[in-house]
Design a protein around this nucleic acid. Structure first.
Lengths: 224, 224
DNA sequence: CCGTTGTTGATAGTATTACTACCATTTAAT
DNA sequence: ATTAAATGGTAGTAATACTATCAACAACGG
């Protein structure tokens, strides 16, 4: 049994949270709290109380809650890219590769205790609801320069690359990849909260399959 | 010369800002300030100082800054739908109608003094950067019940309707419409701040045409 | 012309947030 | 055993997101 963990950019934290008990506790409980309260209502104070620590201690790990959020979300994208790599490895046929990418994106996540201490289902909800808040800020450019968005950009590039393999002449592989990546998160969110914006009905079982059909349709038709 | 203005849902405000000088001032300057500072840094205090009024007075118009943001963004979607209606009126051919829709979505906005007191270019930037913050909150369901997202849902429905006219059998008209609406805002934002996520290069002149080509490609290929 | 009502301005106050600073204690490493 | 690192505890600050109260000044109807 391998416990999977990923080293993320040092610019994200003051002290690496994966190295200490308190650090891991911070990550673990922030994930749960952000999911429950939403990012706006989530504070270091509440987190500190929850884990029986203090605000000051948390600030020793993360400069602010914005970087903590990016940390969590970067973790998700890194993990997703890892998963995709793992599954397209050794597959030669480009179309098949692309289908696997999309399938992995849409796949219903499960809690796998082998993957660190993180519940991927919760993580997925956080990414759906909070991802865009990481870069829709006035500090985008500074954050980007620090490499805080590398995991997402890397995943996008990977998918764009696979698209290029299927259709070398296609003009917009990166745009299509980023559009699909966002769409996948949004369609699930809409299904749940704003159903008129989507044709995918909220259904914990069937929605993922239907999402796959939608994305496959958009991607393969667009590049053909 | 007609000054165009739209009546928005009463649930958005305490007192209708379009009816008084102070109200119009609030809208006018919030738009400028949200654009300049970003929504997080924007406060009623700063706004009050800017327009030579007080926090208390602003609270007489808007319950909080969240509703003010929704107000501004609802205005934008309402105006965009109006514009689309205006231009697809009397056009019979469904494909032509859909093309006009997309063209109007992508079109470079200009400052038209006939449309109230609002600079649409600024508005467009705000929508690009802040729109998702209106619904990615824990109060989505409550806000939705109050009808705060009607203008966006209505526009989405309209485009889905046109898609249906072109391709009556297509399974995902709403999903495709909402995906494209978001993509249009995001691709421009990426072009500017996260260029590796897009194949559209930042260029105040040419980017809109290229965006149109992208969206036309995605939409027409997907539904064919 | 008076009295009522509505709108704004001015001021004040509160709970919470997002930090920073400093010191004491525990723990781990040499 | 000594030292350094990690944490906890406490305190404090500026700013935010409000709420409440009161006075000034229109505007309007009788």
């Amino acid at each position: 049994m391998t416990i999977l963990s990923f080293k993320l950019s040092e610019n994200l934290y003051v002290r690496d949270p994966q190295e200490t008990e308190l650090g891991r506790n911070i990550i673990d409980h922030s994930i749960k709290m952000v999911d429950k309260l939403g990012f706006e209502e989530f504070t270091f104070k509440k987190l500190a109380t929850q884990i029986g620590s203090t605000e000051a201690s948390i600030y020793r790990y993360f400069e602010n809650k914005h970087k903590l959020l990016i940390y969590i979300i970067d973790w998700y994208w890194t993990w997703l890219e890892y998963k995709i790599d793992f599954h397209i490895n050794n597959i030669k046929d480009p179309s098949e590769r692309l289908k696997i990418c999309l399938a992995k994106l849409c796949e219903e996540k499960t809690f796998d205790p082998n993957v660190a201490y993180v519940d991927e289902r919760v993580l997925e909800r956080i990414v759906s609801a909070e991802f865009e808040k990481t870069f829709l800020t006035k500090q985008v450019d500074a954050d980007n320069k620090e490499g805080l968005f590398l995991p997402y950009k890397s995943l996008c590039k990977k998918i764009a690359g696979v698209i290029k393999q299927v259709s070398p002449g296609y003009e917009f592989p990166h745009s299509l990849a980023s559009t699909v990546l966002l769409a996948m998160k949004h369609q699930l969110y809409y299904a749940r909260h704003l159903p008129t914006l989507s044709d995918i009905k909220y259904d914990p079982k069937k929605q993922y399959k239907r999402l796959y059909v939608l994305l496959e349709n958009i991607v393969f038709k667009s590049i053909q």
